[in-house]
Amino acid sequence: MIKTSVINIRLLRSLMALMILGLLAACSSAPPKDQSADYESAAPKAETDDLGNMGSIYRSGYGMSLFLDRRARQVGDIITVTLEEKTDASKSSSTATGKESNLGIPTVTLLGRGVTHNGLPVVNSSVSSDQDFSGQGTSSQSNSLTGSITVTVSEVLRNGSLRVRGEKWVTINQGEEFIRIKGIVRPEDIGADNAVPSYKVADARITYSGKGALADANSMGWLGRLFQSVLSPF
């Protein structure tokens, strides 16, 4: 009796330790890192004033081209990214297996007569087994994001491609919604309106989220995260 009580106490302590570890794991989740610095607008390089040729008609840095393409091509230029993201995925699987076996065993005989007990054969004359398995699974997912966001060119790569980044914040009532995007754009994909669709942005990282009371209401609490953690014994 004493030994059983000791085992129960140890089991209870182990369960309490697992609960505490799960609670610490749920509470110690660090808040998401603020990545605003990664999406800050890139300012164009400052041009130094050339005071040479004073008094002449030509002055460096004051030229104007009547036929220059105004599409983004330098660091700090502005380009509009049209969000046209839509993905649909579905998957289904089905499995069915079956197996049936029959085995016959001849009756045991002794001196030409079958061995029986109370009129029944000592050894069963047949063995049969039947196994069946069936499984089915279905998964589907659909995402859609439309809109537009204006970003700046942060870097011009050696092959001429443009690395862009930017964010847009909208404050509505008690919450803030923001869109962030960064990636690489080919100058050839930029339209005459200085815009490019999002599906032509290479290595695109698009984030659409929010902060505030509404976002907090849609997030799971720490107790719920505890029971969803891998350390939960349930």
Rank of each mutant, 00 (worst) to 15 (best):
G119E: 12
V75S: 08
Y58V: 01
D50F: 07
G52Q: 03
A72R: 05
V123Q: 15
L110S: 13
R59W: 07
P44Q: 04
G119N: 09
N53G: 05
S101A: 08
P106R: 11
M64K: 04
V115A: 13
L51I: 02
T116V: 10
V75A: 12
D69V: 04
T116Q: 14
L83W: 03
G76E: 11
N53Y: 12
V75G: 05
E84R: 00
N118Q: 07
A72E: 06
L83V: 03
A42W: 08
T95C: 05
E84T: 00
R73L: 03
T107F: 14
D49S: 01
G104M: 12
K33H: 07
K45V: 03
L68R: 15
T87Q: 12
N102K: 09
E100A: 04
D77A: 03
M64C: 04
M64F: 11
K33L: 11
S60E: 10
E47P: 00
D77L: 03
T97S: 15
K45I: 03
R71L: 14
L66T: 00
T87W: 09
K86R: 14
K99I: 01
V123N: 15
V81M: 12
S56E: 13
L83C: 02
R73Y: 02
L120D: 05
D77R: 04
K86N: 10
D77H: 05
L111T: 01
I57H: 13
T48L: 14
S101F: 12
D50R: 02
V123F: 15
Q35F: 06
G52C: 01
V123C: 12
L68C: 05
V81T: 04
S56G: 05
D88T: 02
A42I: 00
G52P: 01
S90C: 03
Y39L: 00
N53V: 04
A46D: 10
N102S: 10
R73C: 02
Q74C: 04
T97Q: 13
V75P: 02
E47Y: 02
L83P: 00
A42R: 02
D77M: 03
